[in-house]
Structure formats: structure tokens, C-alpha cells
């Protein structure tokens, strides 16, 4: 709780302890005086009271002393905050997107991930954007937090001081599954981090047309594996289960070939799920809403490219 696992946490802890010590002292003083007076001047011991109207000197003292103390607190808080706002220029940039109810992290080389991987000891500059409503990027261990506001790019930065996995929460209420909008920050030594980044970069580049025609054909098995990963990275699994349980959206289990009732323009219609339907339902979900569900599915038309969509559909088709 009080370790400093990031460079930011240090200054937060200092300011907190400064205020905490003064606060405890104040509280003890006030409580002690109350109890002491109540006992000492109880009617039994002190039958006639003395009406003291006030004391100018005391009033000055207990105005000036607290003023100085709170100005000190303000100063400590400000210094730490200024530090949080000044991003070092050589920091590694990661773009983070928050959306109901998952996180997407994008690295400069195009790698995408639902977990934030960072190198140990290097400053990381996270740019924050929201795709729908307010969210907040919160890593308690690092003592950093910043809201994600639609239409705005906010940021946080930090340097991790210990390797490990740390919780990442959404701290601004964002609807039904707000408390499940969790992820992790994984801190790796620089060389391990670079190895991870390279491995992931392959995942991105695999689908790029390579000059060698044979390699370009992805095998079906690897396409499905791609689809499975993409359904996590792109946030589908935040609303759709694969085990048959009902979450915010209908389950993906056995989706291909089942018949579903959809509502379009107030009219109900029964459809059998085929590849074409999956495509439409993913890209333009607002056109037809599955009966019994809310229109909460974010349209994917500008969020998935053709190849990503193909992979996801291939994956959905075989979920029995």
C-alpha cells in the first residue's frame, strides 16, 4: 500500500503522509480537549459555569496556524501534481482506448493488446481516448489516474520501478459492467519487453501480403486463433460469452446456424445466423437489434478492417 512502485507514487505518498500526520494530531487534540472538558466541567464537579465570550488572540492563532498548515499541504500536492503533468520527451508512447467495458492499447509499431505491457525503468506516456462514455484509467499501485473523455485526448505517464503485474481499473462509472472493466499492467525488464513486442509485431505483420504467395495463405487453424485473440483485443468478450451464459449481448456459443429473432424498425423477424448476418450484425448492429437485448453494441465498421473481421467470423463459426 505504501511502497512506491512507480516514480509518481513516491511524491503522492510524501504529500499523503504530511497531511496524515497533521490530521491525526488535530483530531487527537480536538478529541482530547472535548473529553477532558466534558469530564472536568461536568455539572457535578463544576456547578456554576463561566460565560467566556471569546478571546481575540486565540481566534488569531487558530486562524493563522491552520492557514499556514493548509498552504503547506497545498504546496506538497501541487509539486507532486506538476511532476505528473510534465511528461519526459523520450517517453515511450502507448495509445489507450477505453470503451464499454474493455481496454485497448496500441503501440507505435501497430501492435494491439488488451493488457498494458511496459518496460521496466523507462518512462511510458499513455494517451487516453474514449470511444463512448467517460472512463478512467487507474493503476492504484502506481498512484495514477486520469479520465477518458470522448472527444478529448488526455494522458498519464509513469516509470515503473519493479517488474510484476499490477491491477488496472476503470474508475469512472460507465454502465452495467463498469466493475468488470479491468485489465493489468505488466512490467517486464527491457529485453523481455522488446522480445514481447517483436513477437506481437509478427501477429500484426502476418496478415500483410508478403511477396511469397504460399505464405500469404493463412491456414484455417491460425485464422481461428487470430479470431479468438482479436475478439479479446477488440473487446467483444466484454459483452459476449462463449460458454452460453447471457451477458450484455447474446452468447457466441453455437451462434452460427442458430435462429434468432431480431427487431428492425419496430418489426420482428426471424433469421438464421449465417456469415452474411454475422458481418452485418458486427459492422452495423444498430440496424437490427436482437430481441430482448439493448442497443448497446458499438458499431465496428470503422474499428475492424476486412481481415480482422474475417478472422473473427471464422472464429465465431466454429464456436459450438
Amino acid at each position: 500500500m505504501f511502497e512506491s512502485l512507480s516514480n509518481i507514487a513516491e511524491s503522492v505518498n510524501t504529500a499523503f503522509f504530511f497531511i496524515l500526520v497533521i490530521s491525526i494530531a488535530m483530531l487527537v487534540l480536538i478529541t482530547f480537549l472535548m473529553v477532558f472538558f466534558v469530564i472536568k466541567y461536568s455539572r457535578k464537579r463544576h456547578p456554576t459555569s463561566k460565560s467566556i465570550e471569546g478571546n481575540k488572540l486565540l481566534e488569531v492563532v487558530w486562524t493563522v496556524v491552520p492557514t499556514l498548515l493548509v498552504l503547506g499541504m497545498f504546496y506538497f500536492g501541487w509539486v507532486g501534481y506538476k511532476f505528473m503533468k510534465d511528461v519526459p520527451e523520450d517517453a515511450m508512447v502507448v495509445n489507450a482506448t477505453g470503451r464499454m467495458w474493455s481496454w485497448l492499447f496500441e503501440y507505435e509499431n501497430g501492435v494491439q493488446s488488451d493488457t498494458l505491457w511496459v518496460p521496466l525503468g523507462r518512462s511510458v506516456h499513455v494517451k487516453l481516448e474514449s470511444q463512448d462514455v467517460l472512463h478512467s484509467f487507474y493503476v492504484p499501485a502506481f498512484k495514477i489516474k486520469q479520465d477518458l473523455v470522448p472527444g478529448m485526448t488526455n494522458y498519464v505517464w509513469f516509470t515503473a520501478k519493479e517488474p510484476g503485474e499490477y491491477e488496472l481499473f476503470c474508475a469512472e462509472y460507465c454502465g452495467q459492467r463498469h466493475s468488470y472493466m479491468l485489465s493489468k499492467v505488466v512490467v517486464l525488464p527491457e529485453d523481455e519487453f522488446n522480445a514481447w513486442l517483436e513477437k506481437e509485431a509478427k501477429f500484426v505483420s502476418e496478415r500483410e501480403p508478403s511477396p511469397d504467395a504460399d505464405e500469404r495463405e493463412l491456414t484455417e487453424a491460425s485464422l481461428i486463433r487470430r479470431g479468438e485473440r482479436l475478439s479479446k483485443i477488440k473487446g467483444c468478450s466484454a459483452c459476449h460469452s462463449t460458454d452460453g451464459s447471457r451477458m450484455v449481448g447474446p452468447t457466441f456459443k453455437g451462434i452460427f446456424g442458430r435462429s434468432t429473432v431480431v427487431v428492425a424498425n419496430g418489426e420482428e423477424r426471424e433469421v438464421v445466423v449465417d456469415e452474411d448476418y454475422l458481418r452485418k450484425a458486427t459492422l452495423n448492429p444498430e440496424a437490427e437489434i436482437v430481441k430482448g437485448f439493448q442497443a448497446l453494441m458499438p458499431p465496428q465498421r470503422s474499428l475492424l478492417d476486412d481481415e480482422e473481421l474475417d478472422a473473427i467470423i471464422e472464429y465465431l463459426k466454429q464456436l459450438k
Binding site: 511524491s11 503522492v12 504529500a15 499523503f16 497531511i19 496524515l20 490530521s23 488535530m26 483530531l27 480536538i30 478529541t31 472535548m34 466534558v38 493548509v70 499541504m73 497545498f74 506538497f76 500536492g77 501541487w78 509539486v79 507532486g80 501534481y81 511532476f83 505528473m84 478512467s136 487507474y138 492504484p140 498512484k143 495514477i144 489516474k145 486520469q146 474508475a171 469512472e172
Partner: peptide, 30 residues
């Protein structure tokens, strides 16, 4: 009334922690 003073003091003093910018970042919305 005396409990008011005690509880309100805890409330007010914890407010000071929230008023300090850097500390607020950590405890806001928690």
C-alpha cells in the same frame, strides 16, 4: 453534537487529503 465534531473533523481532515492535487489523483473516484 460532540459526535458531530468528531466525525465532521474526520470528514474534513480527509477532505484535506483530497484537496491536495497529487493525492487526489490517487483517491479520486475510490
Amino acid at each position: 453534537a460532540l459526535s458531530f465534531i468528531f466525525l465532521f473533523s474526520i470528514g474534513g481532515l480527509s477532505g484535506l487529503m483530497q484537496g491536495a492535487l497529487s493525492v487526489n489523483v490517487h483517491i479520486h473516484d475510490t
